[in-house]
């Protein structure tokens, strides 16, 4: 899987590259729009992570260009611009997702994985973690081959854990992922995370699944098979 990061802030690009290394992805980075245009002409990418504000123009240009030439390439816009208008403009040009800065790397990872899964694993789309199998297209979960019925939020939570396994997910990151801007981080929303997590854990255990959800005290959770 090959990713191109088009970002003028080198430190942000470096962080993304370091973080995604663990995901066995090939990652390249360019700073300017001109370089980005050259790279997409020369190489083929599975996904582009594009910042809008580039030193020599708007990243939206590259979104349009890549969608015209290589419509199968996934595009995620990362931008500080957070208005609905900005998001709509980006998505209308063909971007698959829009992530507002500052974002969590685990969230970016989840979004990239979603896009890659949709684009690359056509037809055979499943995720496995020991006895757990997730079919993202149909939102179905199987434990040891038996279907486990989850609510929408429990499924989203499990999926988020699966794409970010062995990583610490803070409660705030989970709130952001599950509800975005709807409720924001508050004592209530952290309680809601806990409630959904408790129910998910209970359901997994009830069908004989091991408890992979580790509590990281005072911070959040980690999905891991290491005890």
């Amino acid at each position: 899987m090959k990713i191109l990061i088009i970002e003028d802030e080198v430190e942000i690009a470096k962080s993304i590259m370091t973080f995604l290394k663990k995901e066995a992805m090939t990652i390249e980075h360019v700073i300017t729009l001109k370089d980005a245009k050259d790279y997409i002409q020369m190489y083929e990418y599975d996904c582009l992570v594009v910042d809008i504000a580039l030193p020599d123009g708007s990243g939206l240009e590259i979104v349009k260009e890549i969608k015209d030439s290589y419509p199968d390439t996934g595009v995620i816009i990362v931008s500080a611009k957070d208005t609905l208008e900005d998001r709509v403009r980006g998505l209308e040009l063909g971007a698959d997702d829009y992530l507002v800065k500052p974002f969590h790397l685990v969230e970016l990872n989840a979004r990239i994985r979603s896009i890659l899964r949709r684009r690359l694993q056509k037809g055979v789309n499943e995720m496995r973690f020991n006895e757990i199998t997730v079919l993202p297209d149909s939102h179905k979960v199987f434990v040891n081959g038996n279907e486990l019925i989850l609510t929408k939020k429990e499924y989203a939570l499990l999926y988020y854990f699966m794409v970010n396994k062995e990583r610490i997910l803070s409660k705030e990151t989970i709130v952001d992922h599950l509800w975005g801007d709807t409720i924001g981080i508050s004592a209530d929303s952290l309680d809601f995370v806990y409630t959904h997590l408790r129910n998910l854990r209970k359901k997994l255990l009830s069908v004989g699944c091991s408890d992979y959800i580790r509590t990281v005290y005072g911070v959040g959770y980690k999905f891991s098979d290491e005890s």
Binding site: E9, V100, P102, F103
Partner: peptide, 21 residues
Amino acid sequence: VTHEMQTPLTIMRSKIDLLLE
């Protein structure tokens, strides 16, 4: 202001994410 504030915050947040890792 949005850009200039959110960019360093993104850098800080991403570095913290890496440190957490």
